[in-house]
Amino acid sequence: MILDVIQRSLQSPNRLVPVESLLGRADGGRMPHVDVSLLTAEMAETACRLCPTSALSLVHREEKELLCLDYGQCIGCGRCAELKAFSIAERLTCCGVSKQRLVQYFDPERATEVETELDIPKAAGREILSLMGRALNIRQLDAGSCNGCEAEITALTNPYYDLERFGIHFVASPKHADLLLVTGSVTRNMAVAVKQTYEAVPAPKLVVAVGACGCSGGIFATSPAVAGPVDKVIPVDAYIPGCPPTPAMLLTGILEVLRRPTKPGK
């Protein structure tokens, strides 16, 4: 009986999704996209009012009123997507980036997206790349998540995404890890354990904060039982937004952090 299964598995189609069709994909992640040409000042104001976190806000900069969209705070509720200038993003490139690059500014008066300063490459990422080549060990750390992010991180090992194909493994001990993938807003009760786990990872090390809670505290940001987002407790190198981020977003983020050459294949 079991031989039948193995035979069938060998005959069944390969489910592996090629990396080029995963990078930047965000479908199912419910992150917003702003079409700035349709944006009005009034719409920007309504969107900010609808937003349950502070992912959408109005900011004054250089005597202009700008709409600020912080993906790090967005829980993907989809409320703003009811407005004309907003839709659900099919693609999202700000995965595995600095905190500044999670934020976009839009000028409703001029219908333009305002440029923000670009990233400075992280030294640790380059060092790990030169040391390890294509191998990377990830230790996932739940600092107080709702387990939504865990469900999606677990999916990275299924036959569709198969993270192992990039030489990336999940390891059991922080002492074996190059990268800490931290989910959740850090609760008071976890703060000590999070610090100790970070200290147990040998240098050079990278820390990636995952999900709205990990990036900003998300919907739990104001809770007295929460110490803060991950970067309030340990140093963070890069951020992957989402609530929860889809496997494609996670994979994009992890590969982006490594600045691994992933040239499109045939």
């Binding site: 739940d142 107080g144 998540s145 709702c146 959740g184 807003s185 609760t187 008071r188 009760n189 976890m190 354990a193 739990f220 809770s223 007295p224 039982a225 929460v226």
Partner: peptide, 8 residues
């Protein structure tokens, strides 16, 4: 450990 004060 993941007590987030949700009811509060």
């Amino acid at each position: 450990y993941t007590h987030k004060g949700t009811e509060r």
